[in-house]
Computed example of a mutant assay.
Amino acid sequence: MWGKLLSFNTKYIYLTVAVIVTLAVIFKVPLTPNASGPTNSLFDHVESLQEGDGIWFFLDTRPATEAIHKPQMQAFLHHCFSKDIKVIGFNPLVAEASGMGRSIIEEIAIKYDKKEYVDWVYMGFTPAGISVFSAMNRDINEVYTTDVTGKPFAEIPVAQEFRKYSDIGLAITFAGLKTPGYWVQYAQTRYNFPLASGVTGPMIPDQFPFLNADQMVGMMGDILGAAEYEGLLRKNGYQDQGFASSSMFAQTVVHYVLIIVIVLANVATYMVNRQGQRDRKARAAARARLDGGME
């Protein structure tokens, strides 16, 4: 039995994982974890903002992390647009993110009948480098003369309304790089505005010094943080479950499957090895009896 288990064709394991993931995505089976402190704090801060307030988000990442940051941004934007908060997006530090931000905002904005340039805009990249941190304290028009589509700044009402840090209720960096520390060091500590982050898993520990020092008001950590935020939205009557919650279900079930496979494989290896030892001892004893003339 145990030997047959060790010779089990691994393609069936991969097939099982594929079926679980596919069903979870198709049927959107939700699994909502309890929200962590940083996710709760971020949600509560957005909840405290009023209709007509503005937020900035910075897309400080590359397309490789879109599977993490897109669900984070979707949950966050659902919350903002549900409360009629205006949104301005930037990717001032990472040029590769220019193609990501506008489509994600537009996808959510359409559901709430929000108008580009009036309720939201994506400004895109600027070659200003680190000078962007201080320039955005004075006027974003110093480093942005058009949005990502080429629309002149003077023709974008929402950008003219929220021109500097003191005009906004929150800035959040969705980061796959070490840029949250730059925003804290060069912007938040100097100009004292509410800052938060949405980060990948390996970056989560790096955010806690900022959170503990009240330099950040909250954080979404990895796909788990997005699922937590979706859970808070549902709990407060904002939206149906999104992609992150169904992803957590698929991820959790796959983890259980892999754990079971690993445990069974180790037990099978132990049992096969033990049986092998018994067989070797039996053969050795048989040879000894033959050599001693006992048989």
Rank of each mutant, 00 (worst) to 15 (best):
T32G: 09
V148I: 15
V148F: 07
W183S: 05
H79Y: 05
D214I: 00
Q215N: 14
F125K: 08
A95P: 04
H255S: 13
V118T: 10
K28H: 13
H79D: 10
F76L: 15
N192W: 07
Y144R: 02
F90D: 04
T10R: 12
L264M: 11
P33V: 02
T145K: 14
E295T: 12
R138D: 14
Y122R: 06
Q50F: 09
P209C: 05
T145P: 03
R287K: 15
F153Y: 11
F153P: 00
A187H: 03
E230H: 05
F133H: 08
Y14R: 08
F243T: 13
A67K: 11
P205M: 00
T22V: 12
V118P: 02
L290V: 09
V132G: 02
C80S: 11
A18M: 11
K281L: 10
S98N: 02
P152K: 04
L232T: 03
D206E: 13
A159G: 04
P38M: 04
F90V: 07
K151H: 03
G3T: 08
H79R: 01
G221S: 00
K28F: 07
T252K: 05
P152F: 04
R278G: 04
A175E: 09
G221N: 05
I260H: 05
L93Y: 01
A227G: 06
D119I: 02
G176D: 03
